[in-house]
Amino acid sequence: MLPIKIENISKTFDGVKALDNISFTVEEGELFGLIGPDGAGKTTLFRILTTLLLADEGTAEVLGFDVIKNYKTIRSKVGYMPGKFSLYQDLSVEENLDFFATIFGTSIEENYDLIADIYRQIEPFKKRLAGDLSGGMKQKLALSCALIHKPDVLFLDEPTTGVDAVSRKEFWEMLQSLKEKGIAILVSTPYMDEASLCDRIALIQEGKILQTDSPQNLITSYPHPLYSVKAQDTYQTLQTLRLAPFTRSILPFGDTLHLSTKQGGSIQEIEDFLNAKSQSQIEVKPIKATVEDVFLNLSSPQTKESPS
């Protein structure tokens, strides 16, 4: 039984297409990432799959159950961690966990082993009000509450947004160990660097899926020659290369530029061009694309910027 099966789902709000003909599946035991910026439609899709919102068109099944006909069954079998912290701020850590366990007809003791690795980190603070926890601790409590009824599928909507790099890393390690326990996970994130931690990903922008594949396959599918360019003055170099005849696209990646070229732009040609424009300390290297390069290549920069 497929944990998640989505076929041609569309949803429109006030004339804006939030989801446009979305289809993909999540396989058993898979950690699947939905990767895209704010406003791409990630939360809308999560709400449809967790039976909180009706799609305009298309069908979706979770664990073989239809999201409309069998919504009650689905609700008892999935764990959902919304993007916005949604626990009771005026209940303690332990009371929140106990509340969710009771709602689902179970107890903390019964499924303690599933949440132990995560909950143990916040257990010393179990008498503290949830509203007084730090961001990283809130996140761990929310995950514990989403897991306490031993769900077969876990929906995590932007669990790492607003969380620092250390907590992010720990969180992804927790997801790996949950996955090893056989739980299928659909996780969304706006951070492209988290894509490589998933088994498969779907890139989403403006309600459309750009591509679905393993991170490795996505990266090797990048169709153009790609170079990293470093120079003393990044901003000047960016502007210079934008006008070069061999440039297909030139985009800043921190203190480095990623230059994708049309056929024929060799390292020598790039260096000569920059030298002729008196840029100094130039370093050009061929590189492998990242998931972000793939996203930038597949998505169009114009859609959001052209004045309508």
């Binding site: 910026p37 704010d38 406003g39 932007e158 947004t161 706006p190 492209m192 922008q205 990044t234 901003y235 960016l238 985009l251 800043p252 972000e292 996203f295 930038l296 998505s299 920069p301 959001k304 910027e305």
Partner: peptide, 15 residues
């Protein structure tokens, strides 16, 4: 959380 294209336009403004 901002779109990768938009984010780069923003950083260009900063530069």
């Amino acid at each position: 959380g901002v779109d990768p294209h938009v984010r780069r336009q923003f950083w260009e403004t900063i530069y």
